[in-house]
Write a protein that binds this DNA or RNA. Structure first.
Lengths: 215, 215, 215, 215
DNA sequence: TATGAATGAGTCTTCATTCAT
DNA sequence: TATGAATGAAGACTCATTCAT
């Protein structure tokens, strides 16, 4: 039930922002492309930034929702149960599922997200990615703390939780950018997740501990 | 023997670009900050982009040199020898050394690189990172191919080599951005490298292969 | 029985015009403040100027009425009688009364008048003050003419009548602007009126005439 | 030795501001009239306000200088001497001289001052007149205080000093606006000054005091 | 080497106003 | 009575760049 004008503006905006990036994009051009006057644009959006942000409202909401749900589930599960999961190399389906879901949303709005992730410099969404990373970091910080108690001998960088979050998000972004087909992306992410899980376990493994001792 | 004017311009430029990013930075502002007229600036640089790029000539050259050297060494070593190294979990010192060297260069020009990595949108250097990744990818592609021959059963995503390169570069960039002290960054990278090596081995390990079979 | 909408618009307009002055005030802002759409505003007023003027209809009418009445009375009184009054330094109660009445009206709409007198630049009411001055000037012109006949030796500037009118109006405006309380304003105007009456008499006095002769 | 361009801009600006007033004047129009590009204008002036103000730099400086000098002289003269002057109705030449001087400056820049006094709404010079009044007020406040000590019986409005200053400035502005020829203006001001002096003396005169008592 | 005046297209944004509904 | 979408010209101002000196 969106106004036709509104839609035309957003379509033209998408195109222009993709071509030139947020800062270099021209509202005039957008209006011209949309076959609409400046006033019309400013009827719907109070400024360039809001027009830009409006393109991502839907995706961002969907993503936030899924992430919240996922973390909510984990928080509800018993912590011992949780740890077992973490230690059990056969588990991880939960993770897969969450990532799959997120990836699905991302691929449903691929074009928009690509724009958001690579052309937002200068806008208020310039650092959205960091927001997601920070969100995820909260989650991993708890995990890391628990693991530290179980393996007090392991020395862990204070940046670990943040970096893992960074990695995870970046991994998905990487797929989104470099792989066109969702299906293929999923296959890639399977690889990636097992890669990352092995990395994760290696941190707490005895070999790792020994290596450290040798140094 | 740099002209004093030139130096003042570059200093002012560094400041301005850091504050506003490439696109939003203003040459006028830079001139004003440098206490110099537009004409002076245009005597040294043919346009905004060249001024921006000039700031990174030194670092980029240094980095390219180190990377070339490192890969040259690897290429010269016998391939069988190389594979042994790769399979031998105790090895990896070579890797550490290269990374350490690169990190040292990066931290020697930390401010500049931060600028280049986070504020270059709109300039011709917008995608330098990709150049380094591509460079590294050539190297890893060969490795992956060799590993594939050794473990033909393992299904590997065609993006693996590129992703690993991406990871490695991104890891260093991550450290540069989030960790102020080179020393601390090195400690963090130790963690990261072992994390990544374990990920790498896990791809070719039997467990991994079994997991795949089960699916 | 004013429409509620109309009232809200006018209240919002008052506020906006006070803040920014006629020219810089924004109809959009007014509508927003009033919680009303542009259409509504344009139903009641044909343009910005009319909206502005509408705020002062009441005051202006009241003021005109009082001034007309006052001058009507004077015109009806015999001219000899009038002159006696003018020459008699003890008189002047009539003047006081008129001024008091006018001041009362002005203070009853102080906010509006302040707006009209200080923020109307650009509107059609930009020069209302002059209208009142011109009105008053007609009155004083007659007086001056009569005095000239009585004191033909006195050289009088042709601007005298206009200036005195100007003075009188400006005096009231001055009070309105600088004195918040009507009561205090009245006290001040007492001072002012006697000041002005003495000035007036001095023009026709013998001393003045002598001074002129000396030159 | 002013740049020709600069001069053309200022001439065009003068014209445009006179026609439309500060707020409604258009920089585009000014540039068009001056046959110059926007950039040229912005090379000389940082914004509309500065362009406007630049037109008055000369006059304002001259006026401030004269006023300062005048007050400086008075301040240096002995206070008893000063009071004698104030009480001596035959004196006042000093005042005449100062006013004459000021008027001369004003008429030398009549066009500009008219602009400044009637079309500055919205600019930073909107209230210059008040600055001059305030300046003069400081001067008269001292006088009023001294007179109060001499005539403690006289009740004086606390606004007296400010109002007299207002009057004096407004009188000159009045002449400037309504009288085209400096010579004629001077004649008018003679009238006005004696008018105002008589008003001033009347405040402290015995008659005035009696009048008050009668009430 | 550098100055600084000048270009002119371009920036985002705001405006009073209109009109079909 | 009002809505709200839309107009389109205009607003002040900034930009990278050029060039005679």
């Amino acid at each position: 039930m969106k106004s036709e004008t509104l839609q035309k503006i957003q379509e033209a905006a998408l195109e222009e922002f993709q071509e030139k990036g947020y800062t270099k994009a021209s509202l005039r051009q957008i209006c011209k492309k949309a076959g609409v006057t400046t006033g019309a644009l400013y009827f719907f959006f109070k400024d360039k930034d809001q027009l830009f942000s409006s393109l991502f409202a839907e995706v961002l909401e969907a993503l936030n929702k899924v992430m919240d749900q996922h973390y909510e589930i984990e928080r509800q599960s018993e912590s011992t149960e949780l740890l077992q999961m973490l230690l059990n190399k056969d588990s991880g389906q939960e993770d897969y599922k969450a990532i799959e879901e997120i990836m699905h949303i991302m691929y449903s709005h691929r074009q928009m997200l690509l724009l958001l992730l690579t052309k937002a410099q200068g806008s208020s969404l310039e650092h959205v990615e960091d927001q997601f990373i920070d969100h995820t970091t909260k989650h991993y910080s708890e995990l890391v703390d628990k693991m530290k108690k179980l393996f007090p001998q392991v020395e862990v960088s204070p940046h670990l939780a943040h970096w893992i979050s960074h990695q995870q998000i970046e991994g998905m972004v990487y797929a989104l950018i470099h792989i066109e087909e969702e299906k293929e992306a999923k296959a890639f992410l399977d690889n990636m997740v097992s890669y990352m899980r092995n990395g994760w376990f290696s941190i707490w493994s005895e070999e790792q501990m020994k290596e450290k001792e040798d140094k």
